[in-house]
């Protein structure tokens, strides 16, 4: 059924799909356009001239809070969460290749981490730190841990899926050739799972970078970027908000694009090196 003339439903569904994509991207594009409002312009159309006024405003620090500081914190936190998520997800993925005592319980805790409302994590971590432990909440400690409860399950589920499809005969072959455990991991397993790790890293960074609810009560006195933006929504009523939105969206696109390019390159390298079947010994 996959060849020949397209059925009529194809054209209908293409239209639906196109509308869906417009629905996804349209609003973001709109604020992209509106962020170039002239200095007299407001939050909606019409455009009163075209300028980069609101971007300049953003860089003039006194106008709006500590945007650059919060961006820096969000970036650092994103890197911390990303690294931890990748390492812990790989370890967890390896662990779950066999059943071990308590593995089912741990599996359901991981699922629970995904479904428990984020505000509970935020509230609970905040209370635990302030009421019981007497520790100050900080974005590097409580904020970092609270975000891990969101990124780790994604990373782990990806790794579970990867190892479910992993052919152990590669490892056996390496062991038969005398590789020690670390060598098996470093030279056989790791290169094979590397493309998926890029996916895990992408989830780790972007989910952290954009996380709001889990950081709300756990970041302490210094805001991350989403918290800063949220604060702005209540007291900034100029297109400066759109300018900031446009910049962080462009930054997100750059991050996503980088990850996708890395994934494509590593996929290609893998394909090039993967098999020498039919090339030798004949």
């Amino acid at each position: 059924m996959n060849e020949g003339k397209r059925p009529a439903s194809f054209y209908v569904l293409t239209l639906v799909f196109a509308l869906f994509v417009i629905f996804l991207y349209g609003p973001t594009l709109t604020i992209g356009i509106l962020s170039f409002q002239g200095p007299e312009g407001g939050l909606t159309f019409p455009m009163r001239g075209v300028s980069t006024h609101w971007f300049h405003e953003l860089f003039a620090q006194q106008a709006v809070g500590d945007i650059w500081g919060s961006f820096r914190r969000s970036f650092v936190l994103g890197m911390m969460v990303m690294t931890t998520t990748v390492v812990l997800a790989v370890m967890g993925g390896l662990a779950f290749r066999r059943r071990f005592p308590g593995s089912t319980v741990l599996f359901y805790v991981i699922i629970a981490s995904l479904v428990i409302p984020s505000i509970l994590v935020s509230l609970g971590v905040g209370l635990l730190f302030s009421q019981i432990l007497g520790w100050e909440v900080r974005w590097t400690t409580s904020g970092f841990g609270a975000q891990l409860t969101w990124t780790l399950p994604f990373g782990l589920l990806i790794m579970f899926a990867v190892f479910n499809r992993f052919d152990p005969s590669y490892e056996e072959a390496a062991r038969d050739q005398g590789a020690n455990p670390w060598q098996v991991f470093r030279y056989v397993v790791l290169p094979l799972i590397a493309p998926s790790l890029i996916g895990v890293a992408l989830f780790g960074f972007t989910l952290s970078y954009d996380e709001f609810a889990r950081t709300l009560l756990t970041s302490g006195s210094r805001n991350t970027l989403p918290l800063e933006i949220y604060g702005m929504t209540t007291n900034v009523t100029t297109p400066v908000l759109y300018a900031l939105g446009t910049l962080t969206t462009i930054f997100s696109f750059l991050v996503i694009g980088t990850f996708i390019v890395i994934a494509l390159i590593s996929q290609k390298r893998k394909a090039k090196r993967a098999s020498d079947a039919g090339k030798g010994m004949v």
Partner: peptide
């Protein structure tokens, strides 16, 4: 879009 900010997507 899943990997971009929810708050920005709301504002938009």
């Amino acid at each position: 879009p899943f990997w971009t900010s929810n708050i920005i997507r709301m504002i938009s």
